[in-house]
Design a protein around this nucleic acid. Structure first.
Lengths: 137, 137
DNA sequence: ATCAAAATTAAGAATCATTCCTAATTTTTC
DNA sequence: GAAAAATTAGGAATGATTCTTAATTTTGAT
């Protein structure tokens, strides 16, 4: 494992914010100013496929990276794009995984919602654009 | 609703393949050769936020679009990128949704795995690159 | 340690998906 | 049926990610 890889792994594992590659790059440059953007992307890809870290996709956003830890799902605010974690019980996770055969690698559970901040902001705003998000379960 | 919107809605609702914007554009041009790429993107966005259709994100792929139907999850093959559906019982879906408060819009459940075709192809191939995918539940 | 081979990097060009801009066209309203 | 509003086609612009290449670092055998 090269110094660059160690640095990138450390940044992802110590972050709780599901950082994007660009955010990881900015943080990496603090410790290693000469690191290149391409190096960050390449190592994030390597670390992802070797299972050291996890990659998350949400609509309309660059990819995010997450550390591997106890099973959890993601709360995704469709208004501001913010991501928060929620706990998933091992039982629930196993129920979900029972739907696939062997050769399962991982599972991702995302709940799309309007977060508290966006709900309040919308309450106070004139044009009420959140009305557009129809509930479709 | 304009002719372009009707056409795009129809394509998404009649497709079972979770098509990308590019695939929808190609199909749309068969019926309406003058339609522009930007029109497809703009209407997909409108239809998504009004809840007519749903947008799906998977790592390393362009966004996909899905019709709204009985609750289902997605099986995502990390080797070929293919997407298949699996049924989710209303009970399981409700258990998942119980993790968020009100203002929930939808939930997405994805199981990452190696599909049968990729597993067989890898079995017969020399370099066995699928070994790299470590199981991380 | 020492040299050659292999892997990794930095830097920036290239690519791909998506959005934005503008003038023309279509739809709506009265 | 004319003016106003909305939507479109076409293409330029942007943003995220990958690719290319030459230089640097690491590895491995002697």
């Amino acid at each position: 494992m090269t110094k660059q890889q160690e640095l990138i792994t450390g940044i992802v594992n110590s972050s709780r914010n599901h950082p994007t590659a660009a955010e990881i790059y900015i943080e990496a440059r603090q410790k290693m100013p000469s690191i290149a953007v391409g190096t960050v992307y390449r190592n994030l890809k390597l670390l992802t496929s070797s299972g050291e870290i996890r990659k998350l996709s949400f609509p309309g956003q660059p990819e995010r990276y997450d550390r591997i830890e106890h099973p959890h799902g993601h709360l995704h605010c469709v208004a501001c794009g913010g991501i928060n974690d929620f706990e998933i019980s091992p039982t629930l996770r196993d129920e979900i995984l029972a739907h696939a055969g062997e050769r399962v690698i991982s599972c991702d559970v995302t709940i799309n919602y309007i977060c508290d901040e966006c709900a309040v902001a919308n309450e106070n705003s004139a044009n009420k654009k959140l009305k557009n998000y129809k509930r479709r379960l």
